Computed example of a mutant assay.
Amino acid sequence: MTRRKIALAGIGKIATDQHIPTLASSPDWELAAAVSRHGRVEGVPNFTDMDEMLAAHPEVGTVSLCMPPVPRFAYAEAALKAGRNVMLEKPPGATLSEVHALENLAREAGVVLYATWHSREAAFVAPAAAWLKGRRLKRFTVTWKEDVRKWHPGQDWVFEPGGMGVFDPGINALSIVTAILPDPIHVTRATLEMPENRQTPIAATLAFHHPQGAEVTATMDWDHSGDDVWRIEAVTDGGTMTLDRGGAEMRIDGSVQSAGDGLHGEYPRLYAQMARLVEDGRSDVDLSPARHVWDAMTLGRRKIVAPFHW
């Protein structure tokens, strides 16, 4: 099978750690070009300007965007207007409105737009959704704690407007929540801990309305020391299910199932899905995780906390 040519834009940590290795072993995609102001990919043509790359490589039918959300819209807009399919790293944009605008552009151009949520591709997300279906939820607790210094070392953009702060990892949890809960929920209360020298929260607590009256809460912390905690617990009338390690492990009433590859299969599954979408000529733009973030930022009570320094 002939592999489709794809370009990668935004050569930073996530591209280096996940996208480039995934594309190197993909049966569906051939990395044909890269666009970045600072990074490079060995073995392919490298550009610092998206328009220049698009003009130089008409054979590249798809562009995968990995830069931070604030500058991403302009790159996506250029690619869509040039008739290329676009794959968006999470979160899909700095605002909901700009993603809706991209969705309209893709429709007008007759190309595919894919807003990816890599945590939904963890091994036990789909089994968790199947287990919850038909059970009455009593309590649902999200605990998402990690160290920003480990995952975004020195990247000040995460604390600037549009960077989302703790919701940069927290939206991963919300992407799983919106994939596995049978009933829709919405944010009712939030507390956002704002370092006095930063523009976005470093920690957050959220409460949600559940249509059947279940207690649904989330606690997120980006200044956590020790091992990462990526856990979702659901207490139901038919037992307790816990997703741990970001969905790489599932426990049901003490019985443990664990994925041998941890989270390493997430990005290969994303790119396989992108190949299917392109084959079908179908876009996939689900903004439900982002809506929870935007609602929390709107409703959230700001609590000023100590300055954050790298």
Rank of each mutant, 00 (worst) to 15 (best):
L8H: 06
G61E: 10
A9S: 13
Q212F: 11
I11N: 04
P69T: 12
A56Q: 04
K13S: 07
S175F: 01
A15H: 08
L243P: 15
G43A: 01
M1S: 08
I202A: 15
H19Q: 12
A173Q: 15
G170I: 11
W117K: 04
T236E: 05
D17R: 13
I14K: 03
A9H: 03
W144L: 07
V235L: 14
G281M: 03
H57M: 11
S175K: 01
D261I: 15
A123M: 12
A94Y: 00
T191I: 08
N85G: 03
S283I: 02
P268E: 02
V293F: 06
F208R: 13
P182R: 08
E30D: 12
A128F: 00
R302F: 04
G238L: 09
Y271Q: 04
Y271M: 14
V70D: 06
G300D: 08
G83W: 11
V112Q: 02
V35T: 12
L192K: 11
A207F: 10
R40T: 11
M50W: 00
A94Q: 00
G239T: 00
I202T: 14
I176S: 08
M297Y: 13
A7K: 00
V125I: 04
L277G: 10
H118R: 02
A128I: 02
G170Q: 14
M250I: 12
R139M: 11
Q212H: 14
H152I: 04
M87W: 03
G262I: 08
